[in-house]
């Protein structure tokens, strides 16, 4: 049987579709017997769906650097 820590890692991987089939099976079994992980897993999935729904977007670090440089140019 896997520990809760391991289950949490697999659960997070599953949110990004990076868990293998064997890992998912282990997680399912763990969730069956562990109440805390079952709650956590539900919440985690909820967070993923919220993030999808909000269609988040952001700037890359490079674009931010460019912005900073432009701002500095105007200041000086």
């Amino acid at each position: 049987m896997i520990s809760c820590d391991k289950a949490a890692v697999i659960c997070n991987k599953a949110q990004y579709d990076e868990a293998t089939f064997y890992e998912k099976v282990k997680l399912k079994f763990h969730i069956l017997i562990c109440k805390a992980c079952s709650v956590h897993s539900k919440k985690n999935t909820m967070l993923t769906s919220l993030c999808d729904k909000a269609k988040l977007s952001n700037l890359s670090e490079k674009e931010k650097e460019e912005m900073k440089n432009k701002l500095k140019e105007t200041v000086s």
Binding site: L56, N58, L59, M67, K70, L71
Partner: peptide, 30 residues
């Protein structure tokens, strides 16, 4: 930057334009 960008991109639905608008906002703020 991310917060403002997210706000802008919803309103103009174009990442490039939103980026410019955020930049202009910072400049105007200064």
């Amino acid at each position: 930057a991310d917060y403002l960008f997210n706000y802008a991109v919803i309103r103009v639905s174009d990442a490039e334009i939103a980026k410019d608008i955020v930049q202009e906002t910072f400049l105007a703020g200064l």
